[in-house]
């Protein structure tokens, strides 16, 4: 039985296989409409997240399966003091696969110790969010036609942004990928990612505080939100939240085939005027998120 805790749980070959299945789903959706008939997905969201939960539920429904679950800890037995392990063991008696989100880091690892069915980590605090990374990889593959030879700009909160850390880790396994790390000093990429991922794999990277400095070199611009919930100090959040705002003016020097991504939700870091630019891929990215989750459910349920 396989789980997905962290993007590195899957090899590059397995990720490529998921991307291929997703592409087949995009092109031949009806072929998959009954693949999960009779199967149940439990979405256990101990912390609210409309987007990820609905994406999982939509994915399972599109595969012909059904869904059950809860969307906040207050509506689960956690409110009565039940442990994660006990909740998961119980739910795994009802469902065939579980997607869980929890505010505490490592909670899915605890779940994996007691579950009877595959667990998908749908986000654990600031730690991992592997299905967002799979979504990002499918988006890049679809929009750029490749995952090799790309210059990727990551902009905003690179310190607490788990999607950024996972994306760097995942992309570092592809050929000739370069990173431009754009952030205020306080939100720079942690040293351990620089040392353990970038430098260890001899990956070229540049650090800048300017959004425009390397704009003309970018194939991908991955914007992130400064997340209030990651700060213990409100004053720091207020000071840093408006540091980078992408608008049409700043895209002046950008490549014609730049791909602008964002894990969403955005607050104000991408101006609304950018939405109509064909390079804005972030809402297409949402759709890719559903397809890759469909592929993932099939893989973990071992359905061909």
């Amino acid at each position: 039985m396989r789980h997905l805790m962290n993007i590195t749980d899957f090899s590059v070959e397995e990720i490529n296989e998921l991307i291929e299945v997703s592409k087949d789903i995009i092109n031949n959706g009806s072929k998959y409409s009954e693949k999960c008939k009779g199967k149940q997905l439990a979405t256990l969201f101990f912390e609210p997240s409309t987007r990820t939960r609905l994406s999982f539920e939509s994915a399972m429904l599109s595969l012909g399966g059904s869904v059950l679950g809860f969307s906040s800890a207050s509506s689960s037995s956690t409110a009565k003091g039940e442990s994660v392990g006990d909740t998961i063991q119980t739910v795994s008696c009802y469902a065939d696969i579980i997607a869980m989100r929890h505010p505490k880091e490592g909670a899915p690892e605890v779940a994996a110790q007691t579950t009877l069915v595959p667990i998908i980590n749908a986000g654990d605090g600031g730690h991992n969010h592997p299905t967002q990374t799979l979504t990002d990889l499918l988006t890049i593959s679809q929009e750029k036609g490749t995952l090799d030879n790309l210059t990727i700009g990551l902009c905003g909160d690179l310190k607490f942004g788990r999607t950024v850390h996972s994306l760097i880790t995942a992309m570092s396994r592809y050929k000739n990928v370069k990173f431009i790390l754009i952030s205020p000093v306080e939100l720079q990429l942690p040293d351990y990612i620089i040392k353990d991922v970038l430098e260890k794999n001899n990956i070229e990277y540049k650090v800048t505080q300017s959004m425009e400095e390397y704009m003309d070199e970018l194939d991908i611009l991955y914007m992130t939100r400064v997340q209030k919930e990651r700060f213990f100090n409100e004053a720091d959040y207020i000071r840093l939240k408006d540091y980078y705002i992408l608008d049409c003016n700043k895209l002046g020097k950008a490549k014609k085939d730049l791909c602008i991504m964002h894990p969403l939700p955005r607050v104000n870091e991408i101006a609304k005027e950018v939405d109509s630019d064909p390079r804005a891929a972030y809402f297409r990215q949402v759709k890719y998120g559903k397809y890759i989750r469909m592929a993932l459910i099939l893989k973990l349920l071992e359905i061909k």
Binding site: S83, V84, K104, E105, G125
Partner: peptide, 13 residues
């Protein structure tokens, strides 16, 4: 010592 770790709330782990 990570206050966000699951071990910070589930004492039996």
């Amino acid at each position: 010592e990570n206050p966000r770790c699951i071990t910070s709330v589930e004492q039996d782990l």
